[in-house]
Amino acid sequence: MLNKTLFPTEPYTNVIEAVVPADSALPLVAPSPKASWHLSSPWPIFLGAVFLVSVPVLFQASLVRWQPELSLALTAAWLGLALWLCQREHTRLWGDLLVGFTWTWFAGSIYWGWMRWEPLWHLPIEAIALPLAVICLMRRQAVVGSWFYLGSLFGTVVTDLYFYLCDVIPAWRQVMSASPDELHPIFQGALARVSTPWGFALGMALVGILIFVGYMPLHLQRHYTWAFGGAVLSTLLVDGLFLIAAIAA
């Protein structure tokens, strides 16, 4: 059931051709189980997804504060590299994955570069490429990248939901405009809110959701399911790193 619904394997044809042309550089899913799409272990794609969610965000977090225009311009470089990799049989899976990463980088550059002071805009901006991901999935193009993007977006939704339910959004706004010397009391106040029984119980529940949603697709030996699972599970790593940073501040 999971393989036929959440991760469709048959192409859809009711999408406007002009949106994603049939001759697009984005790779199509090979229809045969014997095709190269299914041959190798999905572990490299899983680890690649974890890396792309957890490591570049540390670099981008600093870049967007000082050079948001450069961060946004790098989107074109990432996309160019992704399409170049997609043109080659031996690297097209990595190019496909990088397409999804390009969407997350683009959204992150816009929000964290110019709109980070308003948390209400976070999810709408992070979801800016959602229509494109859906279209690509319907066309069976950039499937690995699309599911990677959806996994990353799902993790963002869960994290933001926790912030809203624990009422730490005011601290978010304060952190974005505070000087380094002012961060400590803000972080301490936010930690006090999440250290309550409600904050702990909610955190455990959402961690359980992330583990379940991230782990279940790994039962399917497909690169795109492992890209999705890796992106979801790596949310725990990223959130854990930021929690440690808040405690140490």
Rank of each mutant, 00 (worst) to 15 (best):
S152C: 10
P124M: 12
L130Y: 12
G151M: 06
W114F: 02
A142N: 04
I135Y: 03
E126H: 13
W114R: 00
W114E: 00
R116G: 10
I125K: 04
A133P: 13
G108D: 03
A133V: 12
D160K: 10
C136P: 05
V144P: 04
P124D: 07
L137P: 12
W112N: 03
S152I: 06
A127W: 07
M138C: 04
V143I: 14
V158E: 08
L153A: 13
A129Q: 02
S152Y: 14
L132C: 14
H122R: 09
L153C: 10
W121Y: 13
I125W: 07
V143K: 08
V158T: 14
W105K: 08
L132T: 15
L137E: 03
T156P: 02
C136A: 13
L153P: 06
L137T: 11
G151Q: 09
C136D: 00
E126G: 03
V143P: 12
W121H: 08
E118M: 14
R140A: 02
M115H: 13
G155C: 08
F106A: 05
L130M: 13
L130W: 15
V143T: 15
H122I: 01
I135E: 01
S146P: 10
A133K: 03
T156S: 10
G145I: 10
E126T: 11
H122W: 13
W112G: 04
A127C: 01
L137Q: 09
L150T: 12
V157M: 13
I128G: 04
W147S: 03
T159D: 05
F106I: 02
G145P: 10
Y111P: 02
W117V: 12
G113Y: 10
P119F: 15
C136F: 08
P119C: 13
G108E: 07
I125S: 05
P119N: 10
A129F: 14
W121L: 11
A129E: 09
I125G: 04
F148S: 06
R139Y: 11
P124Y: 11
S152A: 13
W105C: 05
P131F: 07
F154S: 05
A133W: 07
G108M: 00
W114C: 00
V144N: 08
A107E: 02
R139H: 09
W147L: 01
R116W: 07
L137D: 05
